[in-house]
């Protein structure tokens, strides 16, 4: 996995190359600061109070008291995290299972009009949630799902199945057929082939899909804002805006809440970077 070296003209030592190199490195570092500093500032502000946040924005906190973090956690964030977890996990499981199931059908089984089915499911990729908003409000209300966990779980699943199916299907297309053909010869049913052979083989892409789904569901705002109303059903992104409204002026608590809500996803990203990147690489077709 060697990458093209942009700054090493075939072994020659060149003054310009050194200058260019230094310049590029400086650029990378500056950009890195621009990217990371606001986030660090956010986390640090959780340790300050209002007058420090606005009076001396660049200073380190006077002390490292967790009080604001504790207060944020106890005054809502805990509930929001719980709701976000429930919705993310439930919709993640539904999405990945249904998508794997569908992808299997689209790659391994025989059915009439398959291209149409493929087009139908994957075509959903092109439709934006915003456009469906008003009809969905009426639909979920008439189904009695408004302001329930189910509203978000179903919507997140329905809107993510096309994309996830697309990823898993692409992966399945690449899997060698010998294994499942051999199993079929031995009398295994389609169901057995799916659960025992294909699904385990798809583990890497499944993990990528799970991670991408977590990224989506944990951060989703539009549906969560429209389809839930009670404080006990607010997900983190919606809860954050309401913390902002409720705490009026205690900004340190707001910063603490923001940090708490951003942290898990950043940790997951660093822990599972490989899968993250694979998922993104596959998903660029979206």
């Amino acid at each position: 996995m060697s990458a093209p070296s942009a700054s090493h003209p075939a072994g020659q030592v060149n003054v310009w190359a050194v200058v260019a190199r230094t310049f590029l490195l400086a650029l990378l570092v500056c950009l890195g600061i621009v990217v990371l500093y606001p986030l660090i500032w956010m986390a640090l502000n959780g340790f300050k109070d209002n007058s420090q946040i606005f009076g001396d924005p660049f200073a380190l906190p006077a002390g490292w008291s967790w009080a604001n973090y504790v207060q944020a956690w106890n005054q809502g964030v805990r509930n929001y995290v719980t709701v976000s977890l429930i919705v993310t996990v439930a919709s993640g499981i539904c999405t990945v299972l249904i998508s794997a199931w569908t992808a299997f059908g689209l790659t391994r089984s025989r059915m009439p009009m398959k291209p149409i089915v493929v087009g139908f499911v994957l075509g959903g990729l092109m439709l934006s949630p915003t456009v469906a908003l008003i009809p969905l409000v009426k639909m979920l209300q008439s189904m009695g799902l408004y302001n329930t966990y189910w509203a978000l779980i179903i919507l997140y699943t329905a809107f993510r199945v096309p994309f996830t199916t697309f990823l898993i299907r692409a992966y399945m297309l690449d899997l060698p057929r010998d294994l499942d053909e051999a199993a079929t010869m031995d009398g295994a049913s389609e169901g057995q082939v799916f659960w025992r052979i294909i699904l385990p083989l798809c583990r890497p892409i499944i993990i990528s899909c799970v991670i991408l789904h977590v990224l989506f569901a944990w951060n989703e705002y539009l549906f969560a804002m429209i389809f839930t109303s009670g404080a006990d059903l607010q997900t983190l992104p919606v809860g954050l805006t309401s913390i902002m409204a409720r705490h009026g002026t205690n900004y340190a608590v707001v910063f603490a809440a923001m940090t708490i809500s951003a942290l898990p996803i950043v940790v997951i990203f660093f822990a599972a970077q490989r899968y993250f990147i694979r998922g993104l690489a596959e998903g660029i077709g979206k």
Binding site: I98, G105, F159
Partner: peptide, 14 residues
């Protein structure tokens, strides 16, 4: 194999 996805996507997306 595809029924759930087709119904789900048809109903809530299309």
């Amino acid at each position: 194999w595809v029924a759930i996805a087709v119904i789900l996507v048809g109903w809530f997306v299309y």
